[in-house]
C-alpha cells in the first residue's frame, strides 16, 4: 500500500525539520532537509523558495550554501496545522 503526501503535509514536514534540527536558531542545512523531508533536490529548493517568500522560513546566507530557520509565522503555522490535523484525523482523514 502506497500513501501519498499532500502539499500541505510536505510543507509541515519541512517546517518541522527546520524547527527540530535548527540548532537553536542557527538554521538547518539543505542536506538535512532533503533527508528528513524525503524530496528531490529541485522540488525541495522550489518549496523552500516559496516558504521563504511567504515568511514561514528565514534564509541565512552562508559562504557555500544557505541555511534555513523557522520564523515565528512558521511556528504559528505548525501550531495551527497540528490542531487541524487532529481534527481531520477524527474523521479518519489526513491533511
Amino acid at each position: 500500500m502506497v500513501t501519498y503526501r499532500t502539499q500541505v503535509k510536505i510543507v509541515a514536514d519541512i517546517l518541522t525539520t527546520a524547527r527540530d534540527y535548527g540548532n537553536n536558531g542557527e538554521g538547518v542545512g539543505v542536506t538535512t532537509l532533503l533527508r528528513k523531508a524525503n524530496l528531490s533536490y529541485s522540488r525541495l529548493m522550489k518549496i523552500l523558495k516559496e516558504l521563504v517568500k511567504s515568511g514561514l522560513l528565514e534564509e541565512i546566507a552562508q559562504d557555500k550554501s544557505s541555511k534555513y530557520r523557522i520564523s515565528e509565522k512558521g511556528l504559528e503555522f505548525l501550531e495551527v496545522y497540528s490542531r487541524f490535523e487532529e481534527f481531520a484525523q477524527s474523521f479518519g482523514l489526513r491533511l
Binding site: T6, V8, F77, V80, Y81, F84, F87, A88, F91, L93
Partner: peptide, 18 residues
C-alpha cells in the same frame, strides 16, 4: 465551520472537502 477555518489557515484540500 471548523473545517473551513482550517482550510483558510492551511489550504488543505482535505479540510475543503470536509
Amino acid at each position: 465551520k471548523i473545517a473551513h477555518r482550517g482550510y483558510v489557515a492551511t489550504h488543505s484540500p482535505t479540510l475543503l472537502r470536509l
